[in-house]
Amino acid sequence: MVFLISFDIDGTLEFGDPPGGITVEMVRRAKELGFLIGSCSDRFPSAQRAMWEAHNIEFDFVAAKHMLPDVRERFPADKYLHIGDRELDQQLAEQAGFEFLWDHEGVSEPWLDWLRTDGQ
């Protein structure tokens, strides 16, 4: 099974502005467990790349927030998740066929359960 997680940055990730509850360690853990990870944010794509590199995280994609459908097209996966802090995140995620979690809901790393329930 292939799982993809898209993170919003500002208000969602700990290095966002304002900082969110999703830590670098959570992202790194997801990557190490085989999730496809990346960001879909209103920050410039080039700036998103620089952020991941600054935190030494190997990412699979960066995209402007409204380009979630493009991410889905580029990366075939069994489940798609976007995590964000704005209604706009929710709206764009649902339009693109992603599941959606609010930033505070992501703090418990519920995607790890997918490995048990869906990842057999």
């Binding site: 209103d42 920050r43 410039f44 794509p45 080039s46 700036a47 620089a50 995209a63 402007a64 927030k65 409204h66 380009m67």
Partner: peptide, 13 residues
């Protein structure tokens, strides 16, 4: 962060 032409053209309406 320096913006590129590609960044700008990818901006959300």
């Amino acid at each position: 962060e320096m913006i590129t032409v590609e960044d700008y053209l990818a901006g959300r309406w």
